[in-house]
Design a protein around this nucleic acid. Sequence first.
DNA 1: ATAACACGAATTGTTAACAATCAGATAATA
DNA 2: TATTATCTGATTGTTAACAATTCGTGTTAT
Lengths: 240, 240
Amino acid sequence: MFLARDRWLCNLSTMEKPLETIIVDSILDAIADQRLHAGTKLGEQALSDLFGCNRAHVRRALGTLTAYHVVDHLPNRGAYVATPTPQDARDVFQARRAIETVICRNAVRQATSEDIAALRVHLAQEALARGSGDRSAAVRLSRGFHLLLGRVGRNPVLLRYLEELTMRSSLIIGLYATGHGTLCADDEHTRITDAIEARDMDAAQDLLDQHLRHIEAGIRFGDDAPVTGALSMALRRDAR
Amino acid sequence: MFLARDRWLCNLSTMEKPLETIIVDSILDAIADQRLHAGTKLGEQALSDLFGCNRAHVRRALGTLTAYHVVDHLPNRGAYVATPTPQDARDVFQARRAIETVICRNAVRQATSEDIAALRVHLAQEALARGSGDRSAAVRLSRGFHLLLGRVGRNPVLLRYLEELTMRSSLIIGLYATGHGTLCADDEHTRITDAIEARDMDAAQDLLDQHLRHIEAGIRFGDDAPVTGALSMALRRDAR
DNA sequence: ATAACACGAATTGTTAACAATCAGATAATA
DNA sequence: TATTATCTGATTGTTAACAATTCGTGTTAT
């Protein structure tokens, strides 16, 4: 009985996550940061070596990533970072509008002052990253804003879908975004936060809807150049 | 080269699906038909024996079902059919409203005459099942209507979420539905179809939203009696 | 009589070896 | 020379054996 408690405390102290989660998150982060490009092969042996673990663990991790639709699994040929088509992009962004507008209304209804404060802190971080020209951090923080909003909305079902959709969005933006595109205009996030603080549900929803349409409008289809990057390089957090 | 073609033709002729898919669909169907009740343990050995296959296949199938949130996986203790809480139910139905209203608008915009015809055929089947008092078939067909609508909407992303949400809804209804509840009032499906055929987007969306609210209102929380059923019985398609 | 303990059976988790399939290179043929 | 066939190395898929944990049962002590 107390043995279990000891193990629990041990886990708390070392903060060791389940191995599969580490692999999934690493790959997800690498994709969100655009260190892993669409079309890159994710070999089982290579990942096993990188994470110093069994191939079975890698296999399960790739399975959940496949369920997320962020990697494609070709039978007998391996797993590859998904290459979303323009139609995929339209479908994903329509789904985001459907889900995030509702999330936004929830956020307006339920946001505490702590939530607002957290959003403000996040906005400051975004501004900082944008100011220092750290594109990778900017992309990650931009996604983080939408996820934070999702958490304020307090609907785990919608939040889970949002996690997947923002992930696929990162892939899409990495594939199709034009260089000039201001990925997530910072002041749009700010104005959304303002509307939430003002408890103006319709305004917040409308701002978010327009924000998502702006992002979608900023991606240009036509020159699909899925650059294949080296796996071991991409998964190092300090790369780039 | 032609060897591959032979294998392909062979697969086509026998229509053999991947094994994992068979297991997943069987369990999913059993849950949708309410032959598998919330809380039922899904032992790996038991399922391996039932499907005459390796334990690894069962394990992967249970993994994807866990990703669908229709089974809960307790480490070192096994997989159990999920037992949604009342809060889960509210979250699921809010997500359904968010997603299905958009699906519905897509359907109004894109439905072909063949789509309308398919919907009418389905409505007839629903009426038939309702008339003959086949509750199991009625539940399955009711879900089928929403899925058919999802296919007409032609957004695979939203359709996949809808599949998961209707599955969880089946579980929820099986857990909490009152006997008197008309699960999906048939004429509501009919009126939605009428609105789609009339290309009245707002009316169709409104009818669907109200329809989902009616379903949600029909479930009563308070007496949670998650009946545990026998596994081998539940998975036989002719059971009940 | 109840609660804590210990043991054994059953179940889940992990690992490694084996089989099947695919990609690329080499050789053979028209 | 271009095309096809074959062979080889590498990668994925499958299976079974092993290790670790949990659950039920019977026992013991208070």
